[in-house]
Amino acid sequence: MQISLTINGKSHSNDIEPRMSLVHYLREVMDLTGTHVGCDTSGCGACTITLDGNAVKSCTLLAVQADGCEIMTIEGMANGEQMHPIQEAFKENHGLQCGFCTPGMVMTAVDILKSNPNPTEEEIRHGLEGNFCRCTGYHNIVKSIQQAAEQLNS
């Protein structure tokens, strides 16, 4: 099937099998391997991207469902050399260790901060409930998002 969509600001058209998941499309067809597969059944959040501005788990979306949509992946977050404030905050606060869940965490943080620019610690933790991290114990991820919120609001 033919699909056309925008990924990180650029338009793409591809002919794909309907059964191809969006994450598979991003990784295998578009070579955007920054989006990871941790469980493939929407349990872990590693594959989180934004679709028309909303965080979604790209393992549980067929690529054909994203036809006509605007997608942002972790690769599209930085502005050239300049990392996005959320990315900067993760680095500053040691919000990542092995890095595997990180793209999903960052993309989820985009949604958390979009709908709630001044979240409390509890709201951030609640917002991250769909994302597993096995390394950090979440402590520094929460701190990163707190700092990113301050940064984005300043």
Binding site: L32, G34, V37, T73, I74, F90, K91, G99, F100
Partner: peptide
């Protein structure tokens, strides 16, 4: 000291085995 490995991970440029083709 902030981690030097973070730049690649935060940009989605880590090289995990499944990323290799």
């Amino acid at each position: 000291v902030k981690r030097r490995e973070d730049a690649r991970f935060l940009r989605g440029a880590g090289r995990y085995t499944d990323d290799i083709k």
